[in-house]
Design a protein around this nucleic acid. Structure first.
Length: 199
DNA sequence: CTAACGATTCGCT
DNA sequence: GCGAATCGTTAGT
């Protein structure tokens, strides 16, 4: 069920981002198991993509993990408040990653609601990368975590969407990326309640 | 050492 | 719809 290493080593990060729709993201943190179906992703390429932190060999302490072999967790703090979770992809030396932006809650819903301080089940529980990470208990402690390990991983449970049930559009919040901002590298499940509202 | 800036969210108007 | 919150990373002095 757990996705194998091969899944993460593919060279086309946009294809991996699309393929992640319908997969199950699982965290098991301090014995709290939470799971959701991935319904929204964004691809970031380490070459010729100004939106990517690791663009064109920009190798720093923060981006280091992206340059290693795919299948690791890249978590970083955004706006000093939100922890954003990415899956690293591609082979050693090529720094690609997929931002997971939203999930549909499946297991551990009560735990997620506790973490998010929500009293009722609503899309704001897990729609949007910061909200989703908080619901799953993802913090920068998981920076570099192996996605074949025991704290965080991704499973195929047989759910898949047809190409017509998926949309591709420009990524959110990357206007600074100039000509790369228009790339249709945000993928989402069409008409899914748990996808974040962009703008 | 200093300063600017986010791959966002929430609350208030 | 608008702006504050909040801090690690980054690049430049």
């Amino acid at each position: 069920m757990k996705l194998s290493k091969d899944f993460y080593l593919k060279s086309d990060v946009a294809e991996v981002a699309r393929a992640l729709l319908g997969k199950f993201l699982v965290t098991n943190i301090n014995d709290h198991l939470t799971t959701g179906i991935i319904v929204e992703t964004e691809a970031y390429s380490g070459r010729n993509d100004k939106a990517c932190h690791a663009n064109n060999g920009r190798r720093t302490k923060r981006t280091e993990i992206m340059f290693l072999e795919g299948g690791k967790s890249y978590v970083y703090l955004c706006y000093g408040i939100h922890h954003l979770f990415n899956v690293t992809t591609n082979v050693d030396g090529l720094a690609d990653a997929v931002l997971i932006r939203a999930i549909e809650p499946v297991e551990g819903v009560e735990i997620m609601m506790d973490r998010r301080k929500k009293k009722s089940l609503q899309p704001s529980l897990t729609a949007g990368p910061g909200s989703m990470a908080q619901a799953l208990g993802i913090t920068t402690k998981l920076y570099g975590a192996d996605l074949l390990g025991e704290e965080i991983w991704i499973e195929d449970r047989g759910v898949s969407f047809s190409i017509d049930d998926m949309i591709a559009c420009p990524r959110v919040g990357v206007a600074y990326a100039e000509e790369d901002a228009h790339r249709p590298w945000r993928f989402a499940v069409r008409d899914n309640l748990w996808v974040s509202k962009s703008k």
